[in-house]
Design a protein around this nucleic acid. Structure first.
Lengths: 353, 353
DNA sequence: CGAGTCAATGGAAACGTTTACATTTTGTCT
DNA sequence: AGACAAAATGTAAACGTTTCCATTGACTCG
């Protein structure tokens, strides 16, 4: 008759009347509450599966406030410009982290401006989400203060300098930048540029610190002229690095904060004479293994953003379940992957047998 | 006192008692129903904003079944392998398409297997979503049949060959493949490989048709040996193309279905002698403009996946609002972007001033 | 055997909203 | 002025779930 739905879906009520039990008992039985007899529970479960009962989240939401929905606020510029490919991995990871639970993830790209705060306020207020994930943290991140104040559950991708402890996942950016810079220094580069995000972000400051420490350890003087703190858009990086290359003593090594920054950098460097281009050194942070597939060889400090995403939602689920904050702070180290241009077959000949 | 929430958030009830109205009237006033006086509406709105009232979706959900949440099922392999960078753009577009409405998007990467169907069944049944977006359609797509049967709202990214009309957005794949192939043929390539997805997908068949038509029009014989229909993973493409290159008459031109396939292809071709490598031709489909930033030059048929995503959710919102199917079928043409290796400064010298 | 204890279950309210139906108010026409 | 229609507002039920509190029945113990 009704071509939309064969019949009304079974609810707790259906199961209850099927068994002649009260809905209270059925509700308890379904969640495995041992207030009800083993036997009753079994009967309820049998009936539920037979009737095709599925828990309706709408009722749960209304009654308990639980939405079983997480919100990931990803700081990105909605643009047609080539965007960070690792974001795909991050999102896949975020979802993978919820696969074992009832939780779903809503991804919300936001611009990095002031109105992100207002937006977050709104999101917290309207109660559609059980928890939040934030990235691109600032030292005294206003969003995190807001969430703490409101008592909302969240995990941040990146630490803060706030006194209040909160759950976070982070990559050891200082260490990664240190090793990236060191790698270039070891290869003989003395003019090493750092292309990174604006220093309002903590991760940018951490990376700058790692960069400076590496320079000191390598006996190279720090020069602000080689540091570019900017919003990372592939085109703007391209332009900026082109400027760099016009310097009298232009950099010969480049440390970048992500794939986009590196692609923009490479694009600029390709305008140099071939010989000069070949002599340059590139090390990027990397969350997607893109650099396995492009030329020239770019070494990278790799931490799979898939894993990062997975950790983030897994941790957030823990937070929501009430786990203590202490167990929910995690920093992971990136892996240094050294790449160099493989000799081509025709180049082989010269060294050949 | 309560450090979690300053005070209970205002509900319709709060507003009603604030004004001495019934909740029914307030409800109607809030949605701008002209059953209530202009004046009352104004008073209600004033009171609502003063009290900081926000519509609680939980109540709405329960009462109307509306969740204001869309679900995008993206066919991807959760992997740490480099994944399609355009997915980021697609997701950003999906979200952008809902920005003007109350709708949110849940992104759900799924594997392409059988259990996607069971999963979808589950998702439709539990009523958490008002509508669905599917990609990677098959000619007689079982998922779409399921959705049609259940009366669920959806838009597919890609057409089908089902008799029942349904809303879709699609890129003209046949045309794109035709032009890609033609581009290589014009450049003098006669052995042109097609690297594409398995032919269970309609878009793959469409592309194959475009490819064959172009060969005919260019007077080149079709050879199945140059066609690779495979699951696109960057590593597997790399391996597959390496096999291609071992053929006696190995291809000199490559048409690929996306960025990942092209990167894998390039990776394989880089193992060739430099001179051979330089003589090859590459044309890819492209949703992210990645090819503006890598070498060698790859021409592409570009349609921004951001736009695709935006269309998809905008259309889905229309569907949910009850727009007729006829207005919700859209096919867009990709733009051919021709790229060639820009001469380098040092190469310039030889051609001198 | 009556009182008390405990285990198992049931009754009913509550979450915030929408809406069919009922009621009141206002305005118009004779 | 009275009748009646139209406009505005109110009443109450319903969506599916959880949970506080009450009830029932069985068992134990003095």
């Amino acid at each position: 008759m009704n071509d939309r739905v064969s019949r009304k879906p079974a609810t707790i009520k259906t199961v209850a009347s099927d068994l002649g039990l009260s809905i209270a008992t059925v509700s308890r039985a379904l969640k495995g509450d041992d207030l009800v007899t083993e036997e009753t529970r079994a009967r309820v479960n049998e009936s539920a599966t037979r009737l095709g009962y599925r828990r309706d989240f709408r009722g749960v939401n209304l009654r308990t406030g639980r939405t079983y929905t997480l919100c990931a606020l990803l700081t990105t510029v909605p643009t047609v410009e080539f965007a960070d490919p690792a974001t795909t991995h991050l999102i896949q990871g975020l979802v993978a982290g919820t696969a074992a639970s009832d939780f779903k993830v809503v991804v919300l790209p936001t611009d990095s401006g002031e109105n992100q705060l207002a937006m977050l306020d709104e999101l917290v207020a309207n109660g559609r989400f059980d928890g939040f994930i934030l990235d691109a943290t600032e030292p005294l991140d206003a969003r995190i203060r807001l969430l703490l104040e409101r008592g909302a559950r969240f995990v941040s991708f990146g630490r803060t300098e706030l006194l209040s402890e909160h759950p976070y996942f982070d990559i050891d950016n200082e260490d990664a930048a240190y090793r990236a810079t060191m790698q270039l220094a070891k290869a003989g580069h003395t003019r090493i540029a750092l292309i990174d995000a604006p220093n309002r972000y903590l991760f940018s400051r951490q990376r700058l610190r790692g960069y400076r420490r590496a320079l000191i350890d390598a006996g190279i003087a720090f020069d602000q002229a080689y540091v570019s703190e900017m919003d990372i858009g592939i085109r703007s990086v391209h332009e900026r690095v082109s400027e760099f290359l016009k310097l009298d003593a232009s950099p010969t090594g480049f440390v970048t904060s992500n794939e986009v920054a590196m692609l923009g950098t490479l694009r600029a460097c390709r305008d140099l004479p071939e010989a000069v281009f070949r002599s340059l050194g590139f090390v990027s942070r990397d969350g997607s293994q893109l650099f396995d597939y492009i030329q020239p060889a770019v070494s990278s400090l790799y931490y799979p953003l898939f894993d990062a995403g997975k950790h983030l939602t897994e941790m957030l689920v823990e937070v929501i379940r009430g786990a203590p904050v202490a167990s929910l702070q995690k920093v992971e180290r990136a892996e240094l992957i050294i790449r160099s241009d493989a000799p081509k077959p025709d180049q082989d000949r010269s060294t050949g047998t």
